[in-house]
Amino acid sequence: MNRPEREAAVRRIMDRTPPPVPPQLYEEAVRRGGRMLRRERAARRVLWFLLVAAGVAFLVWALTVQPWVEPPSETTPPVTGW
């Protein structure tokens, strides 16, 4: 089958009238689509909540541990009695 024959076959297929769609199909699609949107919205909210909770946990950890401060030296004892 060469290219012109394929194009002609595609045109014949596209010129046909589409088959009838069952009437309950639309309602089922709307119901499933609404459920998918609700699930996606809930998942997005949960992920945002986890992201914010992780940020707050990191902030609390950083403020209590203060990793940017140099730890005190413990190798030499303090000099006293001079």
Rank of each mutant, 00 (worst) to 15 (best):
I13K: 12
L59P: 02
T17C: 09
R16A: 02
D15N: 03
L63W: 12
L50P: 00
P22S: 11
P22D: 14
V30C: 12
M14E: 15
L50A: 11
Q66T: 15
V46Q: 07
A57P: 00
T75E: 08
V52L: 12
P72Q: 08
R44W: 06
R45L: 11
T64R: 13
E40G: 01
D15P: 00
E40V: 00
I13A: 15
F58S: 15
Q66M: 14
L37R: 03
P23N: 06
R44V: 07
P72T: 11
E28L: 01
V46N: 07
E40L: 00
L37N: 02
R32P: 06
A9Y: 05
T17D: 13
E70A: 10
M14I: 10
T75F: 08
E40P: 00
R41K: 14
P22K: 12
V30T: 08
V46E: 15
A54S: 05
A53K: 04
T76W: 03
A57E: 09
A9I: 12
R35M: 03
A29F: 00
R16E: 09
R44G: 05
A43S: 08
W68L: 09
D15H: 01
R12V: 04
A9P: 01
A53F: 12
I13M: 15
P77L: 13
V46F: 07
L37A: 03
P78T: 07
V60E: 05
V52M: 10
L50S: 06
P18W: 00
L51Q: 14
R38I: 03
D15E: 10
A42Y: 08
R11L: 10
D15Y: 03
P71G: 13
A42W: 11
P19D: 08
V56K: 00
R16V: 05
R35L: 08
R32L: 12
Q66W: 12
P71E: 10
W61V: 11
S73Q: 06
A62Y: 04
T76P: 00
P23R: 04
Q66K: 13
V60Q: 12
R16Y: 01
P67Q: 02
Q24Y: 03
P18C: 02
Y26L: 11
R31A: 07
W48E: 08
A9T: 08
F49T: 12
Q24R: 02
A42F: 13
P77I: 05
T64G: 14
V69E: 09
R12M: 10
E74M: 10
V52Q: 09
A29R: 00
V60T: 09
V46W: 09
L59M: 09
L37D: 01
E74T: 10
I13L: 15
T64H: 12
L37Y: 02
L63Y: 14
L59I: 02
T17H: 11
G34C: 04
F58K: 13
A54G: 05
A42G: 10
V30P: 01
A43H: 04
R11C: 08
P18L: 01
R32Y: 13
M36Y: 09
